Amino acid sequence: MSKSVAGPEIERLIQLLAKVPGLGPRSARRAALHLIKKKEQLLGPLADALAAARDSVTVCSTCGNVDTRDPCTVCTDQRRDRGVIIVVEDVADLWALERASAMNCLYHVLGGTLSPLDGIGPDDLNIKPLVERISSGEGAKEVIIAVNATVEGQTTAHYITDRLDGLDVTITRLAHGVPVGGELDYLDEGTLTAALRSRTSL
């Protein structure tokens, strides 16, 4: 059993940091030590920022994004194309698409994917609110399903397509295949197969 050389407050900080994705116990100890060394420049402002986030961050009741307002900044931005809704698994995916600045449209966060083995069914995801958004007649003309190319992601995409069947909306999905700058020799067979099936005319 390892002996603790830090006080209980520091140990608690390390334990909490270790729960952050990407940080294990060793990385958490290094991060905690760095924060303590930079107490005035980092630890204090970080504590203030965490407290402010705890008190002000909320989940958008329309799309599922996280923001300090509800509806969120994306949903209330009148400059966006309200005829297109991109469906994503998680808020991190929404943020990634926003960073890419590929489209200026609306989003809908599912909160995960269907996974019977993990006990995640349609009622555990934000699928019903998506159907309600589309059927409400608020102007959505296209739904882009931008879920990950996993078995669970594809199952979720098919389920959503079935649920939206019969509504006056075009359903599209992200293309899968060769990434920009990718070399064929380094790609896996699944990616190459998807690229061939999704080939387009020149």
Rank of each mutant, 00 (worst) to 15 (best):
L164S: 04
T156V: 04
D124T: 14
R133E: 08
I171Q: 08
I145G: 01
P116E: 06
G166P: 06
V131G: 11
G181D: 06
L164V: 03
T113S: 15
I120V: 15
V143K: 06
A157F: 11
G121Y: 00
L202Y: 09
P179V: 01
T161I: 13
T170Y: 13
V169L: 01
L125Q: 00
G182T: 02
G181S: 05
V147W: 08
H176N: 13
R133G: 10
D168R: 15
E138A: 13
V169P: 04
L184W: 09
L174I: 15
I120T: 12
G166K: 13
S115F: 07
T161C: 14
I120R: 04
I134D: 05
L130A: 04
D123V: 12
R199S: 00
V131R: 02
G112R: 05
E152W: 10
G181V: 00
Y159K: 05
G177N: 02
L202S: 14
E132C: 10
T155Y: 07
S201I: 14
Y159E: 06
P179N: 02
E183M: 13
T170Q: 14
L192C: 03
P129R: 02
V131N: 03
V169A: 04
N148F: 06
G121S: 03
H158L: 15
E132Y: 10
T172N: 11
H158S: 15
L164E: 08
G139T: 07
I160A: 09
E138W: 10
T200F: 09
G153F: 03
G139L: 08
D123C: 05
K141N: 11
E138Y: 12
S135D: 12
L117G: 12
L167V: 13
I171Y: 03
D188H: 06
T193W: 03
D162Y: 13
